[in-house]
C-alpha cells in the first residue's frame, strides 16, 4: 500500500513537471521588461540637438497636451521605419512629441532629420545613453507616453507599428 502511494505521488509529480514544461515551450524566451508599469520619469536636463542649450524636461511638458518621448538614433534601422508614424503623430495638435537622440553623432543625426523630416517639437541629446537608462529604456527605438506629472502611461519597446500608432491615437482621444 505504501509502495503504491509512493508511485502514485511520483507519477503525479512527473505529469505536473510535464505540464509546466509544455506550457513553457510556447512562451517567448527573450526577456522584455514590463511595459505597463505606472512609474515616474526622473526629471532630467539635456542639450538641445540644434541649439546646444541645456533644457529641463519639466519645461517641455504641456498640461493641455500629452507628451510623447521617442528615443531614436540615426544608426538604428527600425527608427527609420517607424519615422512615418512619428510624422503622422506630429500633425496631431494634442500631441507634444519630443525626441531623445540616443548615443549619436550630431552631424549624422541632423542629416537623418533633414532627409526624413522633423516630427519633433524639440530634440534632446543623450550622448552616453544614461538618460535613457534613467527612463528605463534599454535600446532604440523606444517610445514613452507620459502625462503632465511625468507618469509613464504607456511604453513601446522597439519599432512602432501601425497598431501601435492606432493605440496612441486612442489614448490621446480618451
Amino acid at each position: 500500500m505504501k509502495k503504491n502511494f509512493f508511485y502514485f505521488i511520483l507519477i503525479s509529480l512527473i505529469i505536473f513537471v510535464f505540464v509546466l514544461l509544455y506550457t513553457a515551450v510556447f512562451k517567448s524566451k527573450s526577456y522584455i521588461p514590463a511595459t505597463t508599469i505606472n512609474k515616474k520619469i526622473k526629471e532630467f536636463s539635456a542639450k538641445d540637438l540644434f541649439t546646444d542649450n541645456e533644457i529641463e524636461i519639466k519645461d517641455l511638458i504641456h498640461d493641455k497636451k500629452i507628451t510623447i518621448i521617442n528615443i531614436w538614433s540615426s544608426w538604428c534601422a527600425p527608427c527609420r521605419n517607424e519615422h512615418i508614424y512619428l510624422m503622422k503623430l506630429s500633425q496631431d495638435s494634442k500631441i507634444n512629441l519630443i525626441g531623445l537622440n540616443y548615443k549619436d553623432d550630431r552631424s549624422k543625426a541632423e542629416v537623418f532629420i533633414q532627409e526624413l523630416g522633423n516630427p519633433f517639437f524639440k530634440i534632446l541629446e543623450d550622448p552616453d545613453g544614461i538618460i535613457s537608462i534613467d527612463m528605463g529604456a534599454y535600446g532604440v527605438p523606444e517610445t514613452y507616453i507620459i502625462d503632465d506629472k511625468l507618469n509613464i502611461i504607456r511604453k513601446f519597446i522597439g519599432e512602432l507599428t501601425f497598431s501601435n500608432y492606432e493605440e496612441i491615437i486612442d489614448i490621446i482621444n480618451k
Binding site: I11, I14, F18, Y22, A24, V25, K27, S30, Y31
Partner: peptide, 29 residues
C-alpha cells in the same frame, strides 16, 4: 526547444520541443 535563454543560439521551434518532451516523459513513465 528554445526554452532557454542562452548565449549559444540554436534554431528552435516549439513543435520539436513538444515532441522531445513527450518522448522523454514516455520513456520516464
Amino acid at each position: 526547444s528554445g526554452i532557454l535563454n542562452s548565449v549559444h543560439t540554436f534554431a528552435n521551434d516549439p513543435g520539436r520541443g513538444v515532441f522531445i518532451l513527450t518522448f522523454l516523459f514516455i520513456l520516464i513513465l
